[in-house]
Design a protein around this nucleic acid. Sequence first.
DNA 1: TATTGTTATACTCTATAACTATA
DNA 2: TATAGTTATAGAGTATAACAATA
Lengths: 167, 167
Amino acid sequence: MGTNDEELRLPVQVGVAFLLAQLGAHGAGRFAERIAELDLTPPQAGLLRMLAAAPGRSQRELADQLGMPPSRFVPFADELEQRGLIERRRNPEDRRLYALYLTDQGFVLLARLAEASAAHEREMCQALSPDERREMKALLERVAEQQGLGRGVHPGFRRLRPGHRPG
Amino acid sequence: MGTNDEELRLPVQVGVAFLLAQLGAHGAGRFAERIAELDLTPPQAGLLRMLAAAPGRSQRELADQLGMPPSRFVPFADELEQRGLIERRRNPEDRRLYALYLTDQGFVLLARLAEASAAHEREMCQALSPDERREMKALLERVAEQQGLGRGVHPGFRRLRPGHRPG
DNA sequence: TATTGTTATACTCTATAACTATA
DNA sequence: TATAGTTATAGAGTATAACAATA
């Protein structure tokens, strides 16, 4: 149709920041598609990983770390509980709190999730040699640290749903 | 409060894909905050740049490239038109079509937008030396090309609004 | 009185689908 | 009849705020 790059005239500076945003969104979308086969959304995957890493935390804490209000966390956790992936136990010392844990089924799914993450990592790094991949990772880590980002669940998880294939 | 990294036990593999998603989301959010000072959202900025690069296109084409349905594009363009940034002209050859152009005011704002983009680029690359920055850009470009991403407006623009500061 | 978890409500955002005008 | 643009509507998703139980 002739709607190609030749039409671009102004200095469309494609810098590092744009590439990061573009690749980040693309990768997050691909990851969402991949784990949709496990019937998981990115926030759900994030919660499973959080519970594996630090079991027994309260809903309030988990909701805070996921960046969602407690009122939204409740149905969010309900679904995973009904699917038998997580478990709510009352904290006997403070009976206002629930303590959330992964079930055995949850651990099984977590293993499959780890597989999917590894496959996603390989897919995203196809273009790079092992050395380049290490180099890229080192540079990204430097930038992330300087930008004040920790190793937790990243905020882009929050709004993602699979099936938003860009044209 | 003791809710720190030491609690993490499982192999939380922080790979290239995760870092890209995390940094992409962070950068997109910071950019949205920055251009909010110009009263622009990322999709609005994207349209201004598209019109600068390829003037006179129809709403349908622009909506497609931005990944939004035509029904959503209408009020989206309305606002920018009312602010005097863009202009709708009837296409005399096919009077069903509008041709969209930047106004003089639109070009003025575009220049300020370019400044903001450059500042954002500097902010995101603070941790890197000039050489490292070139290296990073080259690696990102390779990955983006291999992943089939063009130089157009990236899909992450679609859902972003400023003011979603992550905790 | 303060906090956890929960429910209810109201609101924003969005896509789908009807509608018009031009072709 | 097909397409560009527009409008209307209905649905999903969300946060805010009220509520109950426990501290």
